[in-house]
């Protein structure tokens, strides 16, 4: 019930982008900090553990958003505007989150 109410509320429109933004900040902050503190060797092995970790995390975030999008799409409601739009926004955010992780997979960290 609460879940259904959420997908009918306009706040659900922002769920996907907010997750994307948080993912972005976490990605950037973790990486900067790791390189700054020398946890990662400059231009070291590739793909390093961190690459796989980041790519995996990206996949998880994207999967989570896709699930959310499906849940929103299936929400019954008198007017489908908000749940449907939320679903589309979440789906787009899933793709965007995945794309963010791509460089993490193909590049060596800390260059």
């Amino acid at each position: 019930m609460i879940r259904r109410r959420f997908w009918q509320h306009p706040a659900s429109l922002l769920l996907g982008p907010v997750v994307w933004a948080v993912w972005f900040v976490v990605l950037y902050a973790v990486l900067s900090l790791a390189c700054q503190q020398g946890w990662l060797v400059n231009g070291g092995d590739h793909p390093a553990v961190i690459n796989l970790l980041l790519a995996g995390a990206g996949l998880l975030v994207a999967l989570g958003l896709v699930t959310a999008a499906l849940a929103a799409w299936r929400t019954p409601s008198q007017s489908d505007f908000i749940p449907r739009t939320s679903a589309m926004v979440s789906a787009c955010s899933a793709v965007a989150s995945l794309l963010l992780a791509v460089p993490g997979l193909i590049m060596a960290p800390c260059l």
């Binding site: 231009g43 787009c92 793709v95 794309l99 460089p103 193909i106 590049m107 260059l111």
Partner: peptide, 25 residues
């Protein structure tokens, strides 16, 4: 959706490796 995504992936696929070769490796 499809057009810009394809273009982005294409450009990045060529661009990122080229950029990496410019670095002081």
């Amino acid at each position: 959706l499809v057009l810009p995504m394809t273009v982005i992936v294409l450009i990045l696929a060529f661009g990122i490796p080229l950029g990496q070769r410019m670095l002081p490796l």
